[in-house]
Design a protein around this nucleic acid. Structure first.
Lengths: 347, 347
DNA sequence: CTAAAAACCGGGAACGATTGCATAAATAAA
DNA sequence: TTTATTTATGCAATCGTTCCCGGTTTTTAG
């Protein structure tokens, strides 16, 4: 069943005018007499005329819609970021089409093809944790297609980038744990391919070094799927806790899903937090205060990241000349200290 | 900066053919010789030709995109439902445009106007908790526009509806608490306007009655914003716990946000769950097992609800004749019993 | 060998809106 | 009165694609 909308032609026919006159009257052109304008505008209102955006898109060669690719919308960081994106996009008359990679490189490519074929005007992307090869993005970018990276940015592409100071977040978390007496701090990290992982590892590394603690590569375990799979996190923690000369007394989880799955593991093993094992996690869940013990977290300004990213993208889309100067914006993370990062057990 | 795509004209010019021939060759028409087809298809592949969906939309009077209106995507139930919707929509070549009402009637109307003006082919909606008047939806529906309700359905509109057995969910939750010795059970409910609220209250009511317990209207508090505002929940609980002759020993929270805000309140008042106050909440969070005490929940099959809803919508969109028979599909909820619903304190 | 029938391909209208250009009428200036 | 100018409107092209309607060539049947 088709739903028939009213067009400019219907108005023209009803009023005995040409479509051009109607179009101009509706756009308040100086060429049209005030009386005609009044008649047209009133009639249009009466029959609830709305210009067909598809016809406009065809003519103007732009769809006023932008694509977003994230791993999961059911991830508090990304749903908050999308909220930020939407808040600005709707104001500026753009709609957003959301696609999920589910952390799969293959699906990221499929999504990109799909979005490109839907003639989006620009793309906001936070790459999947499997993404190492960037050819799919480079191709588009070379042809002048506007792309803005957020959160998980990549180095090899000259575009706008918006992320959080991951280095500082990890540095602060590590320092806090050291302050509380922890000397053996492990890290459950996300995919090695991701910039955010590298930065967080670097911050962790530097904090250890600044406090004269040794860095042990065995204290870091990478999870390719970013914690999406419980088994992956389980394996990482087994290795860190039980197949390690240097058993850690504290853990830093470097992503939302990693954090919750670490907790799940500790619970299953009956490990008390923070007495058996302390932890700080990167997390944007608004429930971490309700956990027992309440969870110390590094929180990212997700909403703002989304807002800044979409603003840069729209600016680039609406630019007449090709953009040559790209911005790299880094927002500060927030550390919220609660119970889970407390002192280790006194033996 | 504009990004120029290759069109059917470019192919026609390059190959010395007409656009009609190219179009037909690409659609594998019988009117075109195998040799010509081969040449065209190969060349199209080589220059990476993709048909312009906007031009197609204009011609076919359909955009192959559908709108979704929910209150919040940062709500586990809805993000899971959207996952279900997307999984089917992408398979069938539709894209989804998501809009959030943030539980505001006004924003719901704005979103609807926006989506309608973007020529979507159909709408999936879970109404806001403020929505009492349905004129905005009735108008569209009368003109033959396909609408499917999910989760928060409305009675006065003859369309497809997909929801969960809210009556049973509440009935089971109440019965479980009664089984554990609770005789005074309160309910923190969502907006009175919503069908799901009414059904859940009815289930609660019936369970009390079936166990020969009295029903006291003072044991129910409604939250117009569905728990979005902490203050609203706080006020409801103050009233139930401290301005009530009949102090409850257990609470049922009838929505995701209500559940978490109840817990937040109990924590702030240092009330132990379940010894001071037991609870079961409707929740789709995948973190409820990690809370202490772990939370007993009524979980809704959000992903499936989304899938069923989009399937019905697409079926209706692609139907040649107007749909006259509408389905009302009700999926079963799942009760997960954990610690929070346990026995009351023995005095 | 001619007529009919396939087989193959191009021209052009259509979808809805905008816009440069042409045109008509009305007014102003000479 | 004639010419120039303003004012108000219509025509037609355009965006990318499909599809109806012809037209030409080749094949088949009688």
């Amino acid at each position: 069943m088709k739903y028939e909308a009213v067009t400019i032609k219907d108005i023209a026919k009803a009023l005995g005018l040409s479509t051009s006159t109607v179009s101009r009257a509706l756009r308040d052109s100086y060429e049209i007499s005030p009386e005609t304008k009044k008649i047209v505008i009133e009639y249009a209102q009466q029959i609830n005329y709305r210009p067909n955006p598809i016809a406009l898109s065809l003519k103007e060669k732009r769809s006023r819609s932008i694509g977003i690719i994230v791993c999961e919308i059911a991830n508090s960081f990304f749903s908050q970021a999308i909220n930020g994106i939407e808040s600005i996009a709707y104001d500026k008359g753009y709609n957003v089409i959301i696609a999920q990679s589910h952390e799969s490189y293959e699906r990221e490519i499929l999504n990109l093809q799909y979005l490109a074929s839907r003639s989006i005007d620009g793309l906001l992307i936070s790459v999947s944790s499997e993404t190492e090869n960037l050819d799919h993005l480079i191709n588009l970018h070379k042809r002048g297609f506007p792309i803005v990276f957020f959160d998980r940015v990549v180095e090899d592409l000259a575009t706008h980038k918006v992320s959080v100071d991951n280095y500082k977040g990890a540095y602060d978390a590590t320092s806090e744990l050291i302050k509380n007496g922890h000397q053996n701090i492990a890290m459950v990290a996300g995919s090695e391919f991701l910039s955010i992982t590298k930065e967080r590892v670097a911050g962790y590394h530097q904090a250890l070094s600044d406090h004269d603690l040794p860095f042990d590569a065995n204290q870091i375990e990478y999870c390719l799927h970013g914690g999406m799979l419980y088994e992956e996190v389980e394996k990482a923690l087994e290795k860190l806790l039980y197949h390690n000369n240097n058993k850690p007394t504290a853990v830093i989880a470097s992503a939302d899903k990693l954090t919750t799955n670490c907790l799940r593991y500790f619970k299953s093993k009956n490990l008390q937090v923070p007495s058996d094992i302390a932890m700080i996690g990167f997390s944007n869940l608004d429930l971490t205060d309700l956990l027992s013990p309440s969870l110390s977290v590094i929180r990212q300004p997700a909403f703002e990241i989304g807002q800044v990213a979409i603003e840069l993208l729209i600016k680039q889309i609406e630019n007449k000349r090709p953009t040559t100067e790209f911005e790299k914006i880094i927002l500060p993370p927030q550390m919220i200290i609660r119970e889970s990062s407390g002192a280790k057990k006194i033996r």
